[in-house]
Nucleic acid binder design. Structure first.
Lengths: 247, 247
DNA sequence: CCCATGCGATCCGATGAGCGGAACAGTCGG
DNA sequence: CCGACTGTTCCGCTCATCGGATCGCATGGG
């Protein structure tokens, strides 16, 4: 039952990297007996491993994670553009992809200044509707994807989170026109963000590149051109790379 | 059936990151119908994703790989010692852990010179008995672990591979005494290696740190002191870190 | 000191989901 | 046009999974 295994693995997060069997059962909504058996099997295959106080993700996941080609290629192509952007702005630069309904961070370059408030981590996920990167990608996605991303209740994650679906759709239209998405304290209190989409030649989105800084201190509108230029340059490189034809 | 899922995922490797369903079925030794169903389920959970010519590891694996705490902490602690070693020798430096019966590379710093011949990759695995790192760890492991690592036929991977279990056990005893393991064209033709174990306070091994260079051109015995010093320094840092108490 | 609580593992009977051979449609290349 | 290949679906049989209950153990509050 792969869905059950997925539920077990889904119980782990950057905030809770080590869990006990009972925790996993609770989070996954499974019976303790089933959870115990599944965990044992996953440990036997090295997908999980026992720690002193519970269970954690094992080395097999690490191995398989290194094989994730999509992120790997995208990352390698994007790294120079991201470095340029960090160099030019001094802020934290992020590369993220849409995995409905969340935006997953694939690479992060920390800014020069103290960035204690930035909670995003590589491999972490945040609801797409609450992030600049997510909105940048959604603005260029088909209506079915947008519908799925906005399905369910839009929880408030910061003082600026847009929880009204209609308002979000209006903003997505504007983002598509302008080519830049902004975020002001929507996913986290105290931080702002500007993002541009990375697009295939046919206009379908692959990812988003974004800069993040403390809200109030930085005018994101001023940074938009820099992000745009970085994204356009990356677009060109990606279109020249055959591997992304159907990615 | 987790064993079957493991077999499906085990079909992927750095050399074959994209596979078709039939390939997976062949490699995993499963019926095509079963493989098709399992792949579909794994795709539905984002563990795999469809590419134009088959299937590849998906973003969920990437996410979970980022959660692999063991490698993460170990890596962060080891990185400075590895950088020093690379600085001092100019050669490729590797950090690897034992996952019976293989040695898994957790981090690799490429040497300054052309390193076209080094096939090891982060997340890749090589039989422990054929690598310096593997022998360094095995030399400090219990007899049950050594037995499991040397069970089955010892395949020859290079002109120097030691395929006689008795000879290997004798060498492991010597390695434990000297504190250094050598490898001359055992895992790959043309490359040599010297490795030292990373040990907990109680003497049980965690990992191995190693340097790799072209066989013949480099005298590994001369490099041993440098590797030893790097490993001893890393040992001290790891023992100071509470997280590794029971790792 | 002892009992309550929560832990993880194990047992076991009913049942439902996975197995795999076969047949299916689709796509190449000759 | 046809063979060889792909990936998917069908379906009856079987066995592995489910989950409530129980067990042994560790912890700690009264």
């Amino acid at each position: 039952m792969i869905a059950r295994v997925s539920a077990v693995l889904g119980a782990f997060s950057p905030e809770h990297p080590v869990l006990r069997v009972s925790d996993i059962a609770r989070r996954a909504g499974l019976a303790k007996s089933v959870t115990s058996r599944i965990v044992s099997e996953l440990v036997a295959e090295d997908f999980l491993e026992r720690a002193d106080q519970g269970v954690r993700v094992g080395i097999r996941m690490f191995e398989l994670g290194e094989l994730a080609q999509r992120s790997k290629e995208l990352r390698q192509l994007a790294l120079s553009a991201m470095a340029d952007l960090r160099q030019a702005t001094g802020l934290t630069v992020q590369l993220s992809v849409l995995k409905v309904p969340d935006q997953v961070y694939v690479e992060i370059l920390m800014g020069r200044s103290a960035q204690l408030d930035i909670r995003s981590r590589i491999g972490g996920r945040v609801p797409a509707y609450a992030t600049a990167g997510g909105k940048a990608v959604l603005a260029h996605s088909g209506p079915d994807i947008v519908d799925r991303a906005l399905a369910g209740e839009l929880m408030s994650l910061g003082p600026g989170t847009i929880t009204d679906p209609a308002a979000l759709r209006r903003q997505l239209a504007r983002v598509r026109d302008e080519g830049v998405a902004y975020e002001t304290e929507e996913s986290n209190p105290g931080i702002s963000c500007a993002a541009c989409p990375i697009l295939r030649a046919d206009g379908t989105p692959i990812a988003a590149i974004s800069v993040t800084g403390p809200a109030g201190q930085i005018d994101m509108a001023q940074l938009a051109p820099a992000v745009k230029i970085a994204a356009l340059g990356l677009n060109r490189r990606i279109r020249a790379n055959s591997a992304f034809s159907s990615l």
